[in-house]
Design a protein around this nucleic acid. Structure first.
Lengths: 225, 225
DNA sequence: CGTGTATTTGAACCGCCTCAATCCCTGTGG
DNA sequence: CCACAGGGATTGAGGCGGTTCAAATACACG
């Protein structure tokens, strides 16, 4: 079964020297398979328990991947920004729901069976998918590190810093947070009030500068890590 | 470069109906590439900052994937059990260290470039890797959910439940926890004392039964989720 | 320009962390 | 097989940080 094929170095593309994600289209090589759809704010893109037949890529806007616990608490496991993939599951059903955070969020969806067939036929497709799954792992691990942090202020600072790096910062006027304090709270596992207090604290300390509650102008490089 | 091979439906294996991991060898199809190595307890398998040239699979024993923060705190981002892969990175260097928890932990390593070349040549190899990356995502998301839980007792209960499902339970005599209270604490983001108190609480409540501190005989099915 | 929602602030309570001491398993050597 | 040593686990007391409930303020959208 295993084929000991000798493959020259020329066949190796540098790992994860992937083309930057075209924010408007998703990965180039998967474009032929993409079904583009636009979603209103707070609309459900994937329901918990949905059959996991598709993979997705955020094109613009933002999404939250989450689960609502029986006690009513919402746990956000991933904030998805343009270029981020989601929908990779081990089970045949989605364990988490995904919904648009921003108005007019654009998401590409791909038939899993179709993409997998394409991956079988074209190693470059397989590599593109592999890169995305590995990026997802990196994102989750980073988040895990943040959530594990002790103090609330440090959690919030790390979260904001992460957003600052991932979101476009045009003309140096800072970023626009796509998420509410409640979203931040549910992702960090703390209360919204504590998020607010932490942000106030960071502002007073001069660690961050806000233009408005959703506009983060500057943030000091991490002093912990 | 890309090989547009036409592959009929017969060539498609059902997604993630993968063969169960041979605990003694790792995935069958990757076996020809595996370099097997045995590690003593607390020995470093991967150092933080190491060049990420290899992927790994735990064959037997257990590992912790972690980072030590500047303040000296250790954050464990993943507990790796037989069948679990690690070493998937976006960067060219490992962001986390990995070390053996159990004595005589056996780990298979694979040259990343070699495996990627094999994946390019054989879609089944590519699928095997994809399955492992997706399993890693599932494990991290599960963990994220647990860490985000509010009370310490529930975190510990979820952790133990998770271990109970993942570890072999021979003759119904329960599982042997490969990790110390400190490991559990560092993974859940709480103190070791709190872990101990939570375990005592769960035992008093009858939620769990311990044969010894490391032997978990029974655990009630999750009442939350 | 007004209304509804998001955000901020306040006060009291509770749970977890910290520091410390004790107990008890486990593995080693006699 | 037993005694002992050493690390792991448990328990205790006190303080702090975060949650909760509640209210005021600020922002964004129509």
């Amino acid at each position: 079964m295993s084929m000991h094929v000798t493959v020259g170095p020329a066949a190796l593309t540098p790992f994860l020297a992937a083309e930057p994600v075209q924010a408007s289209t998703g990965p180039q090589i998967l474009r032929p398979f993409a079904r583009i759809k636009r979603w209103p704010r707070d609309q459900d893109i994937v329901y918990q328990g949905n059959s996991a037949d598709d993979w997705y890529c955020v094109i613009s806007g933002a999404c939250r991947q989450y689960m609502v616990r029986p006690d009513g608490r919402r746990r956000i496991v991933d904030i998805l920004l343009p270029g981020d993939f989601f929908g990779f599951t081990v089970e045949t059903a989605h364990r988490f729901a995904v919904q648009a955070i921003a108005a007019d969020t654009i998401v590409a969806s791909y038939s899993r069976s179709q993409i997998e067939a394409a991956a079988d036929a074209d190693p470059l497709v397989a590599r593109a998918i592999r890169e995305r799954t590995i990026s997802t792992i990196a994102r989750l691990q980073e988040h895990l590190l943040v959530v594990g942090t002790m103090t609330a202020a440090e959690k919030v600072r790390a979260f904001l810093s992460n957003m600052f790096d991932r979101l476009p910062n045009r003309r140096g006027s800072g970023i626009t947070l796509p998420v509410s304090r409640y979203d931040i709270a549910d992702q960090l596992g703390i209360s919204a009030e504590t998020v607010s207090r932490a942000i106030t604290e960071l502002r007073v300390l001069g660690t961050i500068h806000l233009g408005s509650p959703r506009n983060l102008q500057t943030i000091e490089p991490r002093y912990l890590d």
